[in-house]
Simulated assay, not measured.
Amino acid sequence: MFVRIVKMSFNEKHIDEFLSNFNLNKEHIRNFEGCRFLELYRDKINENVFFTYSYWNSEADLEAYRHSELFKNVWSKTKPLFNAKPEAWSVDKVVTLE
Rank of each mutant, 00 (worst) to 15 (best):
D43M: 12
E39K: 15
V94Q: 03
E12D: 03
S58Q: 11
K77P: 01
R66Y: 06
L24W: 02
Y65N: 05
N83A: 01
N23L: 03
F71W: 06
N83G: 02
V91Y: 07
E59R: 14
Y53K: 11
F82P: 14
I45E: 11
I15W: 03
L81W: 07
K44Y: 02
I29W: 11
K93R: 01
R30Q: 15
A88G: 13
Y55P: 00
I15M: 07
F18Q: 06
N11V: 09
L97T: 05
R66P: 00
R66Q: 14
F32W: 01
W56S: 04
T78M: 05
L70N: 09
K85V: 05
E87G: 13
I5M: 06
L97C: 02
E69S: 01
K13S: 11
N31C: 12
V95D: 02
F37Q: 13
L40Y: 07
N57P: 02
V6L: 09
K72V: 00
R4C: 00
T52Y: 02
L97M: 07
L97K: 12
E59M: 06
S20Y: 14
L38S: 09
N31Q: 09
L70C: 07
F2A: 01
D43K: 13
W89G: 08
D16G: 04
R4H: 04
Y41M: 04
L70A: 08
E33M: 11
E17Y: 10
V91R: 08
V95F: 10
E27F: 05
N73F: 13
S9N: 05
R42Y: 02
T52I: 14
E69L: 06
S90W: 00
H67T: 01
D43H: 12
D61E: 05
D16I: 09
S90Y: 09
L40T: 15
Y53E: 05
F2Q: 13
E87H: 12
F10Q: 06
